[in-house]
Amino acid sequence: MPETAPETARARQSRIARQFIEAIPHAQALGMHLDSVGPEGAVISMPWDERFIGDLRSRVIHGGVISALMDTCCGAAVMGHEKSISATATIDLRIDYMRAATPGQRLIARAKCYHVTRSVAFVRAWAMDEDESNPVATATAAFTVEG
């Protein structure tokens, strides 16, 4: 049987982050997909779904869905950080909603973990629909870190 190459630290962090996201029941229920994760940040997308409409007249997605997407993406960014982080949990999440997401369009969250101390990671995030130049929401967050 041929030997496999040892897993790089970056590949290990990416694998751990993917397993972390895949184990979150609400991420699965909302159809979240981890598009990328690494030291440069994380990107998670999810399809628009009628089940998540918050206002039947406008057909706009409920803010709680956007909040869950951004929180999950922030956590993924922490897990993908270049420091070896094996577990994390949200300490604080502040979201500024800027506009309603366009009905029928896929949602995308991008997050960047920009600073890590011994016990806390700090993250910034953006949520967009297909108009990536006009954010739906922005977030700042703090997460616990465990190595």
Rank of each mutant, 00 (worst) to 15 (best):
L93I: 13
M70K: 01
T102H: 14
R106W: 04
C74M: 11
A125W: 02
A100D: 12
A68E: 00
A121F: 08
V116A: 12
D92F: 08
I108R: 15
R124S: 14
T90Q: 05
I61S: 10
L107K: 05
M98D: 07
D129W: 09
T90H: 07
D129T: 08
D71R: 03
F122P: 08
S84W: 04
C73H: 01
Y97C: 09
I91R: 12
V60K: 04
T90N: 07
A125V: 03
P103K: 11
M79N: 02
C113V: 11
F122V: 05
S119H: 14
T72M: 01
F122R: 07
L69F: 04
R99Y: 14
V78A: 08
Q105H: 15
G64E: 10
S86Q: 11
V120A: 11
A101G: 15
D129A: 08
A76Y: 04
D92W: 02
D71G: 09
V123A: 10
D71I: 01
K112Q: 14
M98S: 04
V116C: 13
D92V: 09
G104H: 13
G80M: 03
V116G: 12
R118S: 15
Y114R: 02
V120Y: 03
I91D: 03
G80I: 04
A127E: 00
R99D: 14
R106A: 09
T117A: 14
R118Q: 15
A87F: 10
S84F: 08
G64T: 09
I95R: 09
T90L: 07
E82G: 03
I66V: 15
G63M: 07
A125M: 10
Y114C: 03
G75K: 02
A76E: 05
I85F: 06
T117G: 12
C74Y: 00
R124A: 12
L107H: 01
R124K: 15
D92L: 11
I61H: 03
A76S: 10
S84P: 00
G104Q: 13
G75I: 02
T72G: 01
G75N: 04
D129H: 08
A109H: 00
V116L: 12
L69A: 04
V78H: 04
F122Q: 05
K83V: 05
A89N: 02
H115I: 01
L93Y: 08
A100E: 11
M128W: 00
G63K: 05
R124P: 00
I91T: 13
H81S: 07
V60Q: 06
P103R: 12
H62K: 02
K83A: 12
D129I: 06
T117R: 14
G104F: 14
H115C: 09
D129S: 09
D96W: 09
I66T: 14
I61N: 03
A68Y: 00
M70F: 00
T117H: 13
V116Y: 05
T117N: 13
Y97N: 09
M128H: 13
Q105Y: 09
P103T: 12
M98H: 15
A101T: 12
G63P: 07
T90G: 10
A109S: 15
A68T: 13
Q105F: 10
T102R: 15
A77H: 06
V60E: 03
V65G: 03
H115G: 10
A125R: 05
K112S: 11
I66L: 08
A89P: 03
R124W: 01
A111G: 11
A121L: 05
A89T: 13
D92K: 13
W126K: 11
I66C: 01
R110S: 15
C74V: 02
V78L: 06
S67H: 12
R110K: 15
T72H: 02
